[in-house]
Simulated assay, not measured.
Amino acid sequence: MNPVISVADLAAALGSERPPVVLDIRYKLGGPPGIGWYREGHVPGAVFVDMDSELSAPVSAPVGEAGRHPLPDADAFAAVMRRAGVSADGDVVAYDGADGIAASRVWWLLRYFGHDRVRVLDGGFQAWTAAGRPVDTVEPAPAPGDFAAKPGGLRLLDAAEAAALPADGVLLDVRAAERFRAETEPIDPVAGHIPGAVNAPETGTLDAEGRLLDAEALRARYAALGVVPGARVAAYCGSGVTASHTVLALASAGIDAALYAPSWSGWSSDPARPVATGE
């Protein structure tokens, strides 16, 4: 299944006999909470799901090994999805404000926990409204779904595996270049990157309107970064959310990739781990 869906295809699906469950994942690091945007208007029938409280486990203070957005417990995540109406054999479409980066978190989680019938709305809510599609303010009460979480549908790396990967594969750091080079670090206490990682800012997977590049363009981009057919590849970012979008982009290009979910926030929580700077 293509990991993205167009506005036109989602609109058609919503008018079908069995429409998909639509999840609103609008989110901005540091706020304001996405529920406010949702209540101002959303795709008709969409259910809001919160990044921090429902798509992540509670965060320790200070941030520890699991990172700034720890993966949620399987049972807790399954309960959130069932509340939203997700069933084992039903389609799901997730969207965010525009670029799909936040929505990719639920795409990755559903895939990891065994649900393959999930896509991200290409261009997000911005594309939906730009196309003149209807917007609703009614908060639905869907019938509970029967989704059960079974971990292992996508590959995860731990810190040791992430450290070893550059020796015979490609570890993509998808943060902005200035953070990768340690010129600035606005969020985490340590600046730099995992030694051997290759910088691949996630903005490079998107066009000017926040839509995912086509498969051919994505394959060319990743080939230039050393990702060739059959290569072992994984991605990380600051907290694991943006790198989920990298896994989605690679999937769209026909490339399987793993995720180092704790990402830089988890890696840098251990002062014994090496840190690289510059290019």
Rank of each mutant, 00 (worst) to 15 (best):
E178H: 03
F180A: 04
R181Q: 11
E183M: 14
P186S: 10
P186T: 04
H193E: 01
I194Q: 03
P195K: 15
A197I: 05
A197W: 05
T203R: 09
T203M: 05
A208W: 11
E209S: 11
L213G: 00
L213Y: 03
L213W: 00
L213F: 05
A215G: 05
A215R: 14
R219G: 05
A220Y: 05
R221L: 03
A223G: 10
L225C: 10
G226H: 00
G230K: 10
A231S: 15
R232V: 12
R232Y: 04
V233W: 00
A235D: 07
Y236F: 14
C237E: 02
C237V: 14
G238I: 10
T242C: 10
T242I: 14
S244K: 06
S244Q: 11
H245W: 10
H245K: 09
T246I: 07
T246A: 00
T246N: 03
L248N: 10
A249V: 02
L250A: 04
G254W: 08
G254E: 14
I255N: 02
D256L: 11
D256R: 01
A257Q: 04
A258N: 08
A258Y: 01
L259Q: 07
A261L: 07
A261K: 02
A261R: 01
S263E: 07
S265N: 11
W267V: 13
S268V: 15
S269T: 12
S269E: 12
D270Y: 15
P271E: 04
